[in-house]
Amino acid sequence: MSRRDMFAVVFFSIVCMFFIFSALLMHPFGSPDETDMDDMIIKNTQRETGANNGVTSVVFDYRGFDTLGEATILFTAVAGVVLLFRRMKET
């Protein structure tokens, strides 16, 4: 076992401890702590956006910038895949 592997094992166990303890210290499942923003969205979604579906109104209206970034990432990934395989087809 080299020194590099030792370092990897130590790092891995520290991160494992971190995740397990934070999973045990979370709030109890089924009762989230801070819900003011979501309560506001649930109460006003029909009046403000006119849509029955709260999730769609969050995706396209309240948090439209997230969807814009997601669309950009999809576009970039498709461009990358097409570029790589086009070069592969030629060679």
Binding site: I42, E70, I73, V78, V81
Partner: peptide, 30 residues
């Protein structure tokens, strides 16, 4: 009305995250 429904914002974030995951997986595999 507010207390009996699950929170919509994490679900919307997960929705975008899934599509991003598929796109990034395709890019990584190529």
């Amino acid at each position: 009305i507010p207390r009996g429904m699950v929170l919509p914002v994490p679900q919307a974030l997960t929705l975008t995250s899934i599509v991003i995951g598929v796109a990034v997986l395709a890019l990584m595999l190529s």
